[in-house]
Structure formats: structure tokens, C-alpha cells
Lab assay of single mutants.
Amino acid sequence: TTEYTFTDDEEARRAIEELKKRGLTFRYEKHGTTWRVRVD
């Protein structure tokens, strides 16, 4: 499991789109302004 942290909404959304394109399994949660994206 790899975890990424983003504080920029645009950056987080781009990363999420990219992961979807690659067909990877991931989860994300947003805490205030911080996004945590975990890739299995």
C-alpha cells in the first residue's frame, strides 16, 4: 500500500483521475484541506 498526501485540490483530483485511468484500486479521504490517497 502506498499513501499519498495532497493539500491542493486540483493536484489531488488529477492524481485520482490518473489512478482511475490506470485501473488501480485506491481509496481516498479528505480531512479539511488535506487529501489522503491510498493505493493498494
Rank of each mutant, 00 (worst) to 15 (best):
R14S: 08
G32I: 01
Y28T: 08
Y28V: 15
R27E: 13
V39E: 01
E10Q: 09
T5N: 05
V39I: 10
A15Q: 05
R22M: 13
F6S: 01
K30M: 05
H31L: 13
F6E: 01
E11N: 06
V37E: 02
A12I: 04
L19T: 01
E17Q: 10
G32R: 02
F26N: 00
G23S: 03
T5L: 12
R13A: 09
G32D: 05
D40L: 14
V37W: 01
T33E: 13
V39R: 00
F6I: 03
T34M: 12
R36F: 15
R13N: 07
T5Q: 07
D9L: 10
E3Q: 05
W35L: 05
L24S: 05
T34F: 12
E11I: 07
V39W: 04
K20E: 09
A12S: 02
L24V: 12
L19Q: 00
T34P: 00
D40Q: 13
T1A: 10
A12L: 14
F26M: 03
H31F: 12
D8S: 13
G32S: 03
T5V: 14
D40H: 13
Y28R: 01
D8K: 05
L19R: 00
K20Q: 10
T5P: 02
R13P: 01
T33N: 14
F26K: 00
K21N: 07
T1V: 14
G32K: 03
T5I: 15
A12R: 02
H31I: 15
T5K: 05
K30Y: 04
D40N: 10
R36N: 06
E18V: 07
L24F: 10
D9P: 13
R27Y: 14
E29G: 04
A15I: 10
K30N: 04
F6D: 01
L24Q: 05
E11D: 09
G23K: 04
R36M: 11
R36C: 14
A15R: 04
T7C: 14
G32E: 06
W35H: 10
T5Y: 14
T33R: 08
F26G: 02
R22C: 12
V37N: 00
W35C: 12
V37M: 02
R27T: 15
E10Y: 09
G32T: 02
R36W: 15
E10I: 09
V37A: 00
D40Y: 15
K30L: 06
